[in-house]
Computed example of a mutant assay.
Amino acid sequence: MQFSVYQESQIGGRKVNQDRMGYSFTRDALLLVLADGMGGHLRGEVAASIFMQTMSTLFQQNAQPYVKKPERFLEEAFMQAHEEIHRYRATNNLPDTPRTTAVACLIQHNIATWAHCGDSRLYWMRRGQILGRTRDHSHIEHLIDKGLADPSERATHPDRNKLYNCIGASSLPRVDVARPAGLQSGDILMLCSDGLWSMLSDEDLVHRLTTQTIVRAIPEMISTATAIAGEKGDNATALAIMWQGSPDVEAPSAEGVDMATVISTMMLPDNLVSTTITANTEPENPSEVDAFNDDEIEKAIAEIRGAIEKSSQIIK
């Protein structure tokens, strides 16, 4: 595999950045993950961190060096994260369960499979067109499906922020898994939180990502989104890759990728897993945060890893 990758997040007008993002890869598999903790519920940032850690741990267990059943892996990993968040609530005797929206994409053998819960999005682009995009689990999308609202109302409808699906709710999440998509060299995949996509149109996103390199487009889009949202704006986060496919494709020059991270996995041993996903427990503005502390999250992460390792339901 060969791909260039870039990621960035800004806190916007919030006191805490509840968005989390990262990627893990082996010689033959790449996992992209983004979670957006729900600020309307207690400790959304903890839910997002638990989701990320669960996905990373399961990927490391199952990508040897690739995941044999991608759709099943994604669905069961989302459900495992949901269970871990509920376990965290019970262990800490919380009055409510932390919640997060999430999106993840698994790429192997030039095939991408993605899944999501809530309104964290994935865009798949090729030569200036959107070939695929996740569908938000929101009230406005439900109204559009029923013919009770027009698609043009997505950005203005009063119920556009109301979600009916997430990780960590009292009911089991609905995990939407997309059909596998065949990637070509030059394809762009972007995972992003609603703090980004809600401020910019799909047309604007596509134009920026297809007329600039990802390392230029992503920070410009995030800065624009946070500027439009203003002092009460949400966290804005994006993780994007440009796919270069098989290892015999020549890597772009440093000028062409503008210092984005270019990764070629052809020389990796089949038992090596690399990841950028960490506990990421440091709040953006510690003086303003009293909802949780680092010791609590570190303890939760350790419990997650232990529970998953002992689980008899490891995906094969």
Results as ranks from 00 to 15, higher is better:
S274G: 10
S274N: 14
S274M: 14
S274E: 15
T275A: 02
T275N: 05
T275K: 01
T275R: 07
T275P: 07
T275W: 01
T276V: 03
T276R: 07
T276K: 07
T276N: 02
T276I: 02
I277E: 01
I277N: 00
I277A: 01
I277D: 00
I277R: 00
A279G: 13
A279E: 11
N280P: 01
N280Y: 04
N280A: 11
T281Y: 09
T281H: 08
E282K: 12
E282M: 10
E282A: 08
P283S: 07
E284G: 10
E284S: 15
E284W: 12
N285K: 15
P286A: 00
P286N: 09
S287M: 04
S287A: 14
S287Y: 11
E288W: 14
E288I: 10
E288P: 02
V289M: 14
V289Q: 14
V289D: 14
V289K: 11
D290I: 10
D290V: 06
D290H: 12
D290K: 13
A291T: 15
A291Q: 10
A291K: 08
F292D: 06
F292L: 09
F292W: 11
F292S: 07
D294F: 05
D294H: 14
D294I: 14
D294P: 03
D295L: 12
E296W: 02
E296M: 13
E296Q: 10
E296C: 09
E296S: 11
E296R: 08
I297N: 05
I297S: 03
I297E: 01
I297K: 05
I297R: 03
I297W: 05
E298D: 04
E298K: 09
E298T: 07
E298H: 13
E298M: 10
E298L: 11
K299L: 13
K299N: 12
K299V: 07
K299G: 10
A300W: 02
A300R: 04
A300D: 05
I301G: 01
I301Q: 00
I301C: 06
I301T: 07
A302Q: 03
A302S: 04
A302N: 02
E303H: 07
I304G: 01
I304V: 14
I304N: 12
I304S: 05
